[in-house]
Write a protein that binds this DNA or RNA. Sequence first.
DNA 1: TTCACTGCAAACGCTTTGCATATGG
DNA 2: CCATATGCAAAGCGTTTGCAGTGAA
Lengths: 153, 153
Amino acid sequence: MKTEKKNQIKDIFDAYLSKKNYRKTPERYAILDEIYKFKGHFDVESMYINMRNKKYPVSRATVYNTIEILLECQLIRKHQFGKNHAQYEKSFFNRQHDHLICTNCEKVIEFCDPRIQGIKDAIEDTMKFKINRHALNFYGQCLDEENCSKKNY
Amino acid sequence: MKTEKKNQIKDIFDAYLSKKNYRKTPERYAILDEIYKFKGHFDVESMYINMRNKKYPVSRATVYNTIEILLECQLIRKHQFGKNHAQYEKSFFNRQHDHLICTNCEKVIEFCDPRIQGIKDAIEDTMKFKINRHALNFYGQCLDEENCSKKNY
DNA sequence: TTCACTGCAAACGCTTTGCATATGG
DNA sequence: CCATATGCAAAGCGTTTGCAGTGAA
């Protein structure tokens, strides 16, 4: 990721911490940095392990705390793909998308489809409901994929 | 629910148990019965409590076991609405639908929109993916609803 | 200086597992 | 009969909480 974008994200986080009178600890910036270096989906434990190997090894409590704040300011998104543990992904410079989940190899593939917006608009009109976000997951099996049926995500 | 439909569901379960050489225990039929009496979404604990008050009080282990079988034969569906515990609903005589989740009062509202089928077909064509099922959740707040912002689901 | 944050470990809540007992086929 | 299911309790596992010590403001 380009330094320029990285700084822009740091600025957003910085502004949010200021606005909410949250403290600007090195741990929080280190976790944000690590998350934005990371490609794809991650869970708390893997991010905790990642952090342990860096210059700012942090506790699980701090990872959970920081992830909570990053969710609040929408720099990350939370997903529950049917497992007992939550998965996350960065959401800035990353357009809204949905997910195909392969129930063989547990691979998660992203896709975009503009029609979901039409459904959202129709529901808001007919159901007296203000929609903030959505999650559309398709579950099935990937075809013609070399590594399918081997667990690797 | 009409006796006729109830029998039809029992027959499906019965046939599935036979096919898989699973045993036909009274506990399993009692749990199926309780689930099909229940309206709306439920979790394991509430179903366990329900069962305790009936003629077949069963253990949690048996509830989990039976729910697993009912998922296999698609007599129920499993949902993760962002909480740490799974929720379930009966799925026979209950057309495929999606969910609006109010993040104030945690109410879950069902809706149907045929356009989701179009998205599914398009994805299957373009992504080399066989789709078995989907989950579309819209998160937001219900408007003009008397009891919203009070937790009651 | 002060109070929110961190780290650690214990507690929590849902789910799974192990084992002795019971029972369907 | 005996392999599978049940009941109970313990263990697992992701997440939350409590608390003493630390450091941002």
